[in-house]
């Protein structure tokens, strides 16, 4: 749709589809006829029928829609953006974060901070990493900008706690080492697109 169509604010000239509602009664007699017709046709009972049918379906045909929430949970979309997770490398178990600070830079709520240092292996070590969830707006930019797929949005949307800091430290977000085998690659926000290979220009290699 082009922008011009949005800018047309004259209601009625846009491209609406009109429903065929028949003619509205004009005279009193017409109205009487309409009432009489509808009463005789027992249109009201159609409504009753619908609700009754739904009740039968719900009660006897297993189509009850309620999820008993804290006890049952719906699976959420992989693209859902809840509390962040910090991923580890499957091979070594070392965290993936390289401390580049891009998430810190892009964060529009300015809620990410990290402490880094030069470690014994001549690498950049992330000594602490926090997200202030009181400020985080879960926009997902951090996950999108992360070059290592290290920070992703997880599915933990229940973030009520006595302290906001309860799940905001590096350790809290990192995949626990004993659950490393269950760590799943993040397919959602910021993940490599399926056609990434096509978009890359090949660089010559001398090996």
């Amino acid at each position: 749709m082009s922008l011009e169509q949005f800018k047309n604010r004259n209601v009625g000239t846009q491209n609406y589809t009109m429903l065929d509602l028949g003619e509205r009664p004009k005279t009193g007699w017409d109205r009487f006829k309409q009432v009489a017709r509808r009463s005789v046709k027992l249109e009201l009972f159609t409504g009753l029928k619908v609700t009754f049918r739904e009740m039968i379906k719900a009660l006897f045909m297993g189509e009850m829609h309620t999820i008993k929430y804290p006890f049952e949970k719906l699976p959420i979309s992989p693209r859902y953006r809840a509390i962040h997770e910090m991923k580890r490398l499957l091979e070594s178990g070392h965290y993936r974060c390289i401390g580049c600070g891009l998430c810190e830079k892009i964060c529009i709520a300015d809620c990410i901070r990290m402490d880094t240092r030069y470690d014994e292996n001549q690498r950049k070590e992330v000594s602490e990493y926090t997200i202030n969830f009181g400020r985080c707006i879960f926009c997902g930019y951090c996950a999108e900008v992360c070059p290592e797929l290290a920070i992703v949005h997880g599915g933990r949307y229940e973030n009520a706690s006595e302290q906001r800091a309860s799940f905001a430290l590096f350790e809290d977000m990192l995949t626990p080492l004993d659950q490393l085998n269950q760590q799943q690659e993040f397919p959602g926000f910021g993940a490599v697109s399926p056609d990434a290979d096509k978009k890359i220009k090949k660089t010559p290699l001398a090996y």
Binding site: T51, M55, A58, M64, H65, T66
Partner: peptide, 8 residues
């Protein structure tokens, strides 16, 4: 009402 709306 809940049943008719397929709730519990």
């Amino acid at each position: 009402l809940a049943f008719m709306q397929r709730r519990l």
